[in-house]
Design a protein around this nucleic acid. Structure first.
Lengths: 164, 164
DNA sequence: ACAGAAATGTAGCCTTGGCTTCATTTAGGG
DNA sequence: CCCTAAATGAAGCCAAGGCTACATTTCTGT
């Protein structure tokens, strides 16, 4: 987690008149820490969307259609939950659907699905490359993939290329 | 994401009377997929608790106390949000606190913090070891760490040891 | 062709984790 | 010693993402 905050010291020393530079430094560190968490939070927010998009793409590719029931079963949720999520996908312009007709992806949605899929593959490959058993790699990648930045992704790619 | 479901095929062929073995296989695959997602979901649920616990441990260690305001600032949230989270920590038996007095960890909480901290370090180290720039490693680890299983963690450890 | 089963939709409830706003307590400086 | 600023607490709002229960539509098999 790393450091964070240095200034205030309990009920006995709030806002000690320290050398201001010190305090600035602390604030910067705080800001950095907060930044990391905010980053993680926003990644968490898109995680669900990404999962749904990727799954819908898979279903479309394999079966030519993506039905609410199948989506729900694959994700291990009830169908109303899947319905709500799809509604959100539609709101965000990632998917389209008509009542009782299954779900399709917009261009934007398909693009996201492709990105997500590539990222997923890369994460799994890297995990396996460093010695994680395949099963665990698949399992953990499902959670990890949403938090891997472009920078890290690029590093993974380099690593895998060099290793081959 | 891998496969999932094979049975039903659109409005024209629901629950086709296929060879039951086929269907069983599909159900098992669905179950596996759903399992991965459920795993990820439950990890997501504990992620916040872990973040708070780890941060509180850090603050206690560095300053001898963990105050709501500091916690909130470090996590980049408002203080009522931190208060609520701490309430949840208390409910779960991870922390204790008295009004206006700052937060402390129970034995259980301290133990979790230690585990989380070790895991965090390991994840950062591994990322760096495969070539991720330190800054990105720190950033991404904050999200990734919550989804790394024991199995994967062990693999990371082996990898790092071998590499040294 | 139609009845029953399966899929989908809708409504409403719960918890989490954000937020703002306002009240209260504490601590420190004059 | 008290008065103000900072920290904390409490209440209430919102969206997301679960769920159950019930209504409606679509398919399928006889």
């Amino acid at each position: 987690m790393k450091l964070c905050r240095n200034g205030t010291f309990g009920p006995l020393a709030r806002k000690i008149s320290q050398p201001p530079p010190e305090e600035d430094k602390a604030d910067i560190l705080d800001a950095e820490a907060a930044d990391r968490f905010n980053q993680a939070r926003s990644a968490r927010a898109s995680a669900l969307l990404e999962d749904y998009t990727e799954l819908i793409a898979d279903l479309l590719q394999e079966h030519g259609e993506a039905r609410i029931t199948d989506i729900a079963r694959c994700l291990g949720v009830t169908h109303p939950t899947a319905t709500k999520a799809v509604a959100r996908l539609k709101r965000e312009g990632l998917a389209v659907s008509r009542p009782y007709r299954g779900v399709f992806l917009t261009d934007e949605g398909a693009e996201m699905a492709e990105r997500v899929r590539a990222r997923h593959r890369l994460v799994v490959e890297l995990l396996i490359a460093v010695g994680v058993p395949e099963e665990a790699a698949e399992m953990d990648a499902e959670g990890i993939e949403h938090y891997v930045s472009e920078t890290t992704l690029a590093a993974f790619e380099r690593y895998l290329k060099d290793k081959r």
